[in-house]
Amino acid sequence: MWLSHHWHAFFLALRRLVDSPLASLLNIIVIGVAFSLPTGVYMLLGNVQSFSGQLSGAPQLNVFLKLGTGKDAIEKLKSHLKQHPQIASFRFLSKDKALEQLKQKNGMADAVNSLTRNPLPDAFIIDAKSISPETLKRLRTEMLKWPDSKHVQLDSDWMERLNALLKLGQIALLILTALLSFALIVVTFNTIRLQILTKRNEIEVSKLIGATSNFIRRPFLYFGAIQGVAGGAIAWLIVALVINLINSELTNLVQLYTVDFQLHHISFEDSISLLLFSSWLGWAGSWLSVASHLWQIEP
């Protein structure tokens, strides 16, 4: 019986949706367009994040030693690094090896051969256990204090800038989502209000012949939720369309820069979350509307 009530409400809601196709369609498109904005921003942020990760991996610390540092000192540093609790792994790059590597680069062999002595320092390339900027900075100052270190390079400056930008983007996304969610609730609220007014007779008669408030409320709630899901789906499709358009242009552009970059749509889980969220908002909007209007209709 419980199930039959819900089926009844669901189909009634669907029928009401289909009975006024143009109004429903416009509503759904409005919701979809509104929601495509935060969805699109979310998609862009996700793409930038994964792209930057792909470019650099984790930031590394490069410790360059003073020229002429002895073998004993190097061994001592190695054992020190092995025991260091905050260091995940490290690689020692001797100055000879560094020169070898330099020689192998195109066009450098002649230049290197013309050198009378090796100008390169010995170096450690270090991966820290944590990639938080604070830890990396602390490690850097610590290493600068070693008697044999000459220079410590931390290539995380641009990462920090990017992270700050991404954070800003996330705040913008949050504000955008909040505002447009509110818009969705208002749209649904109004739709349901109009629907309650036009269904006044039906509601009154239903109450007279023994309908509970829940029975009367349910189709409206389903209506809001269905409209929300459909709006969410439209938003997803709009973003998919935009990605398609941008990607075809992007292929030409990235070829010039010889990097591989394509926009990807939001993940499957995120898509499901989008639909759930938009349906919940529709449900909430109609719940508010029903709560504030239905009690006025008493037989």
């Binding site: 007779n201 039906e202 008669v205 109450k207 007279l208 012949i209 023994g210 309908a211 509970t212 029975f215």
Partner: peptide
């Protein structure tokens, strides 16, 4: 509502949809 379900009522004004 549950009281009304046990009553059959024919209203003055009919209340047909």
């Amino acid at each position: 509502p549950f009281l009304r379900r046990n009553l059959g009522m024919v209203f003055q004004g009919q209340k047909i949809l």
